[in-house]
Nucleic acid binder design. Sequence first.
DNA 1: CTGTATCCTCCCCGATACTG
DNA 2: CAGTATCGGGGAGGATACAG
Lengths: 130, 130
Amino acid sequence: MEVTALSDNTRGDLFDPACPTRALLDRVGSKWTSMAVKLLAEAAPQEIRFAELRRRMPGVSQKMLATTLRALVRDGLAQRRVEPTVPPRVHYSLTPLGLSLDGPLAVLRAWAEEHMAEIDRANRDADAAG
Amino acid sequence: MEVTALSDNTRGDLFDPACPTRALLDRVGSKWTSMAVKLLAEAAPQEIRFAELRRRMPGVSQKMLATTLRALVRDGLAQRRVEPTVPPRVHYSLTPLGLSLDGPLAVLRAWAEEHMAEIDRANRDADAAG
DNA sequence: CTGTATCCTCCCCGATACTG
DNA sequence: CAGTATCGGGGAGGATACAG
């Protein structure tokens, strides 16, 4: 029934209810989640269709995009709206909760864009040092 | 030679140099990293010994703590200082780069503490609707 | 178009034991 | 005390095929 363990939360392994930060990182840390949230936040209050999201997320597979979006919806961070046409069109958007998460994520994105080069440099130095 | 793939960065799988945010989340998202950064940031400018960190991180294994700290050092986020005694005492502290990362992480922690309950609730609702 | 179902691979992480 | 070495499970995530 469930697609992968990303949609059901039977993990309980990486998920520690006593540490909300780890619980959050377990969700946002999955490969495509942060990019999906970013795209949906930038588009808000507009919705984005499944195919459009897929186009804007190079490399994502159908399965993983579906899984990622399903997890976001399940977590109450995103909404799903189906147009009952043939073929169906499915639109996604962030909930207020999801939108409120984009602020903190934007802070993280800004730090990453400013400082990831330093981390890469540190790694190259470590490699050079053998 | 390397302990696990967390220390060498031969992954290249989850790591996309074109997306600094994902690259950062691949590091910070590993199970014990955010907690280690938090503890080291709170203690700054004091250092923390390996055993003390271990005591403050319930459930962490020796191996994973060593791996986590090694990765932080390799990324230039933390420093390692060895006291040449017998037995040796090893002290860890954040670098300026590591300290600068704690700000964004603190923002994320604050959001998590405020809103993770809503996410849990959304999941329970989804289960109930099951 | 928007998914789901299967299969498969990789590697994170835990448990345990050993070293200087 | 502060690691390293080794083994093994389990889950994330990709490829592919199929369905409504």
